[in-house]
Design a protein around this nucleic acid. Structure first.
Lengths: 150, 150
DNA sequence: ACTTCCATGCAAATAAGTTGCATACTGTCC
DNA sequence: GGACAGTATGCAACTTATTTGCATGGAAGT
């Protein structure tokens, strides 16, 4: 749902003035292929399994890609941020669900919530850059695990 | 806008099984009177100016009051949470604005965004407990300060 | 090769929040 | 009115997420 079907990342990176290093491409592919936004920790662990790299490098790449608007940083219900593909032409902004039981975050369909921001955009005296919608609760898996399906 | 016009907090606390200690009441009044949600750090500094108390106590009271549904915990665009009055009969849920320049968070009118969650509630397989909407950008003050008004 | 720039690593620092344990307070029972 | 049980608070130490400073290493141009 979130995934970007095999964009040409090296080209995309260059178009934004980002040198397409192996680490950056790996990270971008990992996040791009993930059905849900990922924490830096998770990204670090996953990448590090196959290609040794430093935790700090992960943070630096994330900052860079967010700044270049290739990734977006989402706040979760816990203490760490999550990162997903930034919205673009092929990838609509969408809300996310955070499960307070298992800590997993998932993407919701972009039309699952109907949000009209026009009134606010007209009246708000500052500059609006993004609207983040997060739904909190217990996810389907966790509800099932605890609940009726013994 | 956020403020609860002088609720009877001791009574409210007891009704939820929360012992109304001086620290807890002070904290609740501070948050209740604030026009915007506050960080633990800010709460600590403010309370500590007049009545010595420990930072840990602040965290513990916040956890307790969130658990009892008297306060709500909001994620901001930065690394700390913010706390405000929990929505209730006199206090509608509302979105918040986070300014990435000055770090301030403000409450927006509860009708400033039109959000329809019914479709999601019908279809989502888990349990939805709350929906958090945060608008990010540059607030009115900061836009003005940097911009036209030299 | 020589320089320049930037990507990465490594160690240490910081910030926010949490835990363990000791002391002090609240309200209840004799 | 003191002993008791159960919290509430303080204090120090810890953990986790993230950031910074500084040094090395490698690619690209000259």
């Amino acid at each position: 749902m979130t995934m970007c079907q095999r964009c040409n990342y090296p080209r995309l990176f260059r178009s934004k003035g980002v040198t397409p290093t192996p680490n950056r491409l790996m990270l971008m592919e990992l996040v791009g292929d993930s059905p849900a936004p990922l924490s830096p920790q998770k990204i670090y662990e996953t990448l590090n399994r196959t290609h040794r790299l430093n935790r700090v490098t992960v943070y630096r790449i994330l900052d860079l890609l967010v700044e270049k608007n290739l990734l977006e940083r989402l706040s979760s219900g816990d203490r760490s941020f999550r990162y997903g593909l930034a919205p673009n032409a092929n990838h609509r902004p969408h809300p996310h669900f955070f499960c307070r039981r298992c800590g997993a975050m998932e993407c919701l369909a972009s039309d699952s919530l109907d949000l009209d921001t026009r009134a606010l955009e007209r009246r708000y005296p500052g500059a609006i850059e993004k609207v983040e919608v997060r739904v909190d609760g217990i996810c389907g898996n966790c509800v099932g695990a605890k609940g009726k399906m013994g």
